[in-house]
Design a protein around this nucleic acid. Structure first.
Length: 117
DNA sequence: CGGAAGGCATTTT
DNA sequence: GAAAATGCCTTCC
């Protein structure tokens, strides 16, 4: 609940909508971190909230949640987990190069601001 | 010096 | 109060 007076933040539903919009802006073959995603969605440092929301997403969602990684392209999900294994499988399917538990941000790091920020 | 891996601190539900 | 799809800092190669 957003029953926190003093916080101009919108309802959790509004935050989730912003997250969907930003996440839908992520092109295939590119990746982004939870923190970046939260910041682009205007959520600030709610990186935890982003990860939690993605985990709440249904399997029927069309959102590319598998393009969301930890900071610096680090995989937060561990192998052995349904989501962790699927994320790596989907990323590789899009042409993303995986290094053990790291992604090549230099080649797949999404830059919504490009250079003219 | 640069990249990768692990640990501790922060935030949200 | 506890758990979790994280983030930044420090250390090793």
């Amino acid at each position: 609940m957003n029953g926190t007076p003093g916080d101009p933040t919108a309802s959790s539903e509004a935050r989730r909508m912003a997250l969907y919009l930003v996440l839908g802006q992520v092109p295939a073959g590119k990746v982004i971190s939870y923190g970046e995603l939260a910041q682009l969605a205007g959520l600030g440092r709610a990186a935890r909230w982003v990860g939690r929301t993605l985990s709440q997403l249904p399997g029927d969602t069309q959102l590319p949640w598998h393009r969301v990684l930890g900071a610096g392209g680090r995989l937060s999900l561990a192998l052995g987990t349904p989501s962790g294994d699927e994320q790596r499988a989907r990323l590789r399917a899009e042409g993303v190069t995986l290094h053990n538990n790291r992604v090549d941000m230099s080649r797949h790091g999404w830059r919504p601001m490009e250079h003219s920020g």
